[in-house]
């Protein structure tokens, strides 16, 4: 095994190893030291986020126009500056209502992004993707593979329909006081849950695989550190 950690980085590695072990100790339960690590980590990330947001958003959108051309810049940044200023009132409990204007604006744009994004970014592409296997004319697949493609398309269509049926909320009230869907919807949704389970199972397995790599990497770092120490002393 070769050493990947340069000697000069030994101190940093030692810190990294210490932090790794401390975080691992969280498996035994919450304790003082691991909390210290977590709070320090949260603080660090908050600090970096603030600087990154300043460099990437506030500076180019608010300050740079003023620096480039103060007069035109003011015209350009007046409204966003006002909105930002109003939003800052949200930190005060008493004056927070003043910030509602900015918040309403932000929510409005967010809702548009939500609706537009969901329709154009998810709904329509996914619908189109379900149908596309049946579009034999535009298909670039070789003729020999078209049949299997069709079978695949049918299965995906059926699975999608069953999965969608699973979410049906409407039900009929029963004498017992409970509410149940129609029998055939229940049956379809039962099939749908199998598809959901498989989909989520695949994603879960992928998540585990990503975790295994993280574990292996940490073990490698620890081993490297131990070997470095052995060689160094």
């Amino acid at each position: 095994m070769t050493l990947d950690v340069p000697y000069l980085d030994l101190l940093g590695s030692a810190l990294g190893v210490l932090l790794t072990l401390l975080v691992f100790s969280y498996l035994l339960g919450d304790h003082f030291l691991v909390r210290l690590v977590f709070y320090g980590y949260i603080g660090l990330m908050a600090g970096f986020a603030v600087v990154i947001a300043f460099n990437s958003v506030l500076y180019p959108l608010l300050l740079q126009p003023l620096i480039d051309d103060p007069l035109a810049g003011w015209m350009q940044v007046a409204v966003p500056l006002l909105l930002s200023g109003l939003l800052c009132f949200k930190v005060s409990t008493r004056l927070s209502r003043i910030g509602n204007l900015s918040l309403a604006f932000l929510v409005g744009v967010s809702l548009a992004a939500l609706i537009g994004g969901a329709i154009q970014g998810t709904l329509m592409p996914q619908l189109s993707a379900v149908i596309s296997p049946f579009d034999l004319e535009r298909s670039s697949v070789a003729a020999a593979d078209r049949f299997s493609g069709l079978i695949e398309g049918f299965l995906i269509l059926f699975g999608t329909v069953a999965t969608l049926a699973y979410f049906h909320f409407g039900a009929r009230p029963r004498f017992s006081g409970s509410a149940r869907r129609l029998e055939w919807i229940e049956a379809l949704s039962w099939v749908g849950q199998i598809f959901i389970a498989i989909a989520l199972g695949l994603i879960f397995a992928g998540l585990l695989r990503a975790g295994f790599v993280a574990l292996v990497e940490r073990v490698q770092v620890l081993l490297n550190f131990v070997i470095t120490l052995q060689q160094g002393f």
């Binding site: 993707a129 596309s132 296997p133 579009d135 535009r138 298909s139 670039s140 697949v141 493609g149 989909a199 695949l202 994603i203 879960f204 397995a205 992928g206 998540l207 695989r209 990503a210």
Partner: peptide
């Protein structure tokens, strides 16, 4: 992508047309 994203993103790659 990460292995966890594969089930989702692969459909774009295997779409017809790709």
């Amino acid at each position: 992508v990460s292995a966890q994203v594969e089930p989702l993103i692969r459909s774009y790659y295997e779409a017809n047309p790709r």
